[in-house]
Design a protein around this nucleic acid. Structure first.
Lengths: 216, 216
DNA sequence: TAGATTGTTAATCGATTAACAATC
DNA sequence: TAGATTGTTAATCGATTAACAATC
């Protein structure tokens, strides 16, 4: 089907292309050349053309790219109009914020279940959805077959929970606990999100700047 | 001072080393070889030794690395015991969750101010800290000189706010709005965090798996 | 047609891996 | 000393950039 495996570095850039193209669409811009886009995004025109050509020839010589068409193509590649069923586990401060803040539909996902271990939390409502107790997880998975599990649970709970969910047929994990999930099945997808890592980059950078300032 | 500029790819891996070494410390493990660590982290031993040697020879031939000492070294490099003053702007669901969920001290940061544009939100409390009205931002910056601004504001507000904060002396931005900040001053640090991007990687991956399954 | 800009190949650059001498 | 494992150099691999012929 696909000519060859597409490298992870290319794929990781797709959401950013998608975002910029979406903004251009909204501004009503119809066409754009790789050169213009590269200037706006801080990339090289070469890279943009290379990246896009992994998936097909979406442009036209002498014209550039049709913004809307390219946006739609990348959406198709990313599967932004998919309906991947996701459950969210751990309805604390952070889990709540994720449920509210992330536009699941725009990411081709559908939030179909909320779970928490605290019986006082379970039973309550969030976005008009009931919060289930974690004990009902297995039954729910057997009936609803979620593909994605979003883990907003305490660190110690994350790995055993992920193992259990794997056995229940979950195929992708969006993990916000502070430890990396270790899952050796090759077809299970894992995104470990470590917010602190990017904050540390700022800390590191500021520290470096201070060091070199005082070295002057 | 430093022999040569250290590549971004190396630096981005440091927080993960730091995390794993912290866990090893807690387990009471005293020494580790690059080989053992590589197996646990899913890297090559070569890469670990290369990475660490950008900053100095922290190991010992025939022995490996002292876990605690290495952890402390990386902490020093990242400046995890710095006291970088940070303000958080936009105290909605998500801003609240960030304030509560992120361990600022562990990242060498200190949250010294909270701001919101909504007068009903401003005046309230979060973690025992008062939420100020955005109109008092300039005055606050003149007095307190925050280095880092955390933006949890609506997309349209992010860029103008960042420009303003730049002028007020803020040197680093942790941006959670859905658009990339465009700041051309070279010494201003920006981390654009796009949670949806990593969710899209899962969507993409699941879609791909489905495609190749049905191709069989 | 002339001008613009792509798709694509070739050249460069950087990052990762392998190898091994140094050394604890 | 012998064994282990680093620090570091050299080889490989992959990703980015440059160049240009194809073509709209």
């Amino acid at each position: 089907m696909s000519k060859q495996e597409i490298s992870a570095s290319v794929i990781r850039r797709l959401p950013r292309y998608y975002r910029f193209l979406g903004e251009l669409c909204e501004k009503g811009i119809v066409r754009i050349s790789s050169k213009e886009l590269s200037e706006q995004m801080g990339l090289t025109a070469s890279q943009i053309r290379q990246d896009l050509n992994c998936f097909g020839g979406f442009g036209q010589q002498g014209y550039g790219y049709n913004v809307r068409a390219l946006y739609d193509e990348i959406g198709r590649i990313l599967d932004t109009s998919g309906h991947h069923r996701a459950i969210l586990i751990g309805i604390g401060n952070f889990g709540r914020a994720i449920a509210n803040h992330v536009n699941f539909l725009q990411c081709g996902c559908e939030l179909i279940g909320l779970f928490d271990a605290n019986p006082f939390v379970a039973g309550a409502d969030l976005r008009g959805m009931p919060i289930h107790h974690i004990d009902t997880l297995a039954g729910f998975c057997h009936e609803e077959h979620p593909e994605i599990a979003i883990l907003c649970v305490p660190d110690s709970a994350a790995q055993p929970l992920a193992d259990k969910l794997c056995a229940l047929g979950v195929r992708a994990f969006w993990n916000f606990s502070h430890c990396d999930l270790q899952i050796d099945k090759p077809d299970i997808l894992v995104e470990n999100v470590h917010l602190a890592d990017s904050l540390l980059m700022l800390t590191y950078g500021l520290h470096r700047e201070n060091l070199s300032d005082s070295a002057t």
